[in-house]
Design a protein around this nucleic acid. Structure first.
Lengths: 243, 243
DNA sequence: TAGTGGTCTAGACCACGAG
DNA sequence: TCGTGGTCTAGACCACTAA
């Protein structure tokens, strides 16, 4: 790794950021692990500690790294807390986050639709793993969810032997498949419940549902999951803070 | 202004952040204005430039300040771009942000409900300014909006002489009333259109709408606006990016 | 006690904008 | 050309963690 610092070039700390991100995406440094200390990196890269520090600071702000004083700097992990804090926005009407219970209805392979091919950047004729599940909040079935994953990345997940999936899928992706979700783009709309959804969620047909379409991406921007959640918002709502 | 730096005390850069925020909330430094340069602040506060720099960097990340190389550091302004970029999340189905057209239906004073008193932290029996309007996107009436403001802060806004309000209210709040919206909490739900809403938005009665309840807050956390937007999401959606 | 990140300093040089 | 923010260095001391 050579850093260049000529006139008008990319700042050293940006190059260091790229260096660290590359280490992580290539799997040299895995989630939960300590990375070399700031001093070690500074010596290795021939820069001062302050420059490494600036690079790490920005990656901490992006939730890529986590600092622990006295211990070191770690690659961020998808534990329950993070999934709940960053990627799950449904709270109950008193504003409390509750960990959803989960029941898997379907988990199988399926030929990808044109739309799924486009969103997940698959090849023509590719298959996806297709999951349907119901998530309950406060013991009330509230969310009907469809999840689609490329078979190229999650090969054995769609096999029939897997019947019950864990609650926090992102943790599974990370620990079992080495795929860390870093960011997601969501599209929200109000829709009408289908008859099937209404019966699954205990609603009258035609009841309004909040639909959340999410594309989840890894650190290097690869789309790895397409998810459509349809939520009953009678006793819960989607929370967002805007700055 | 005295900064203290004894063992276990608040870091200097945090104290400097508070110092700057206080200047802004008290109106000493107003939106759009340059603040003193980093060197000037460092000398005035008896710290090094690097420490001032760290304080300013964090405030820039919070959208409180804006840096312009070669010119100086400015208090952030609510122009159209910022309003659209940070506080308006509705885009059309091709993913494009469009500036909404606006038609005010009502603008008057009204006795505050219990809920409004709670959310806006008003005194019992207080009045609010009550605004109803329709926002059109791509020439299609799409959003029915109710806005409530405390009369204590926006005294003359509810008077009958004001009939047509500008499109970007946050700019009006800032320039006319010295109130800068810094952050907002939103609650999203799927609801059913009332007959009135359906006719205003050209929908069938019972159509689903995306409801966005927003409480907007100033830099010091005072709630200053309560807003309920009900959106037709047939040709548009609410966009959110999650990290 | 040794090593880590956290704060703070003092000073160098570069890039940009305005006069 | 001058003053601004932007990058980078070298080094000090503090706070925390683990052995």
């Amino acid at each position: 790794m050579l850093l260049s610092n000529t006139k008008g070039s990319i700042p050293l700390y940006s190059q260091i950021k790229s260096f660290i991100v590359e280490r992580i995406t290539r799997g040299d440094w895995v989630p939960g692990e300590v990375i070399p200390s700031e001093m070690q990196l500074a010596q290795q890269l021939n820069v001062s500690q302050g420059t490494v520090r600036k690079a790490i600071t920005e990656l901490v702000e992006n939730n890529v790294l986590i600092r622990r004083q006295g211990r070191g700097t770690f690659v961020a992990v998808h534990n329950n807390d993070r999934a709940l804090f960053h990627f799950f926005h449904i709270v109950n009407n008193s504003g409390k986050k509750v960990l959803p219970e989960c029941k898997t209805l379907t988990c199988r392979r399926k030929r990808a639709s044109a739309r799924q091919i486009a969103e997940l950047k698959l090849e023509d004729g590719a298959q996806v793993i297709y999951i349907e599940r119901i998530r309950s909040l406060d013991n009330l079935p509230t969310i009907f969810e469809i999840i689609m994953l490329p078979t190229s990345l999650f090969g054995d997940l769609g096999r029939p032997q897997i019947n019950e999936l864990p609650n926090t899928l992102y943790e599974l992706y990370e620990t079992q498949y080495g795929i860390t979700i870093h960011r997601a783009e969501e599209q929200l709309r109000a829709v009408v419940a289908s008859d099937n959804e209404a019966s699954l969620l205990g609603l009258k047909p035609g009841a309004p549902l909040l639909q959340i379409e999410r594309i989840a991406l890894t650190l290097d921007g690869t789309p790895v999951e397409l998810r459509i959640s349809r939520c009953n918002t009678a006793k819960h709502y989607y929370q967002n803070t805007v700055f």
